[in-house]
């Protein structure tokens, strides 16, 4: 299982980014992978959805794409 410290760091980085600008799921995924590169696809998606559940970001469509922000 992924190290929880990396995940906590990834959550902080994603939270800060979402406060600065709206991000698509792909942006968030790439940001996460800079901190937790070694996870499998399934783990990445599972951990990211848990992070997003905790952050509870707003969402809006920009340029026809869903964006999340805080």
């Amino acid at each position: 299982t992924p190290s929880s410290s990396n995940i906590q760091l990834a959550e902080k980085v994603i939270q800060r980014s979402l406060m600065r600008r709206p991000m698509t799921t792909k942006d968030i995924l790439k940001k996460f992978q800079t901190k937790c590169p070694g996870l499998s696809k399934e783990q990445t998606i599972e951990v990211l959805q848990q992070i997003m559940k905790r952050l509870k970001p707003e969402r809006k469509v920009m340029n026809d794409k869903m964006h999340f922000y805080l």
Binding site: T24, T25, L29, K30, K41, T44, I45, Q49, K53
Partner: peptide, 20 residues
Amino acid sequence: SSSEADEMAAALEAELNDFI
């Protein structure tokens, strides 16, 4: 590869649509 990122982003978005 970016197509893998696209695929994962789509899967994540589907999960997020369920509850956000």
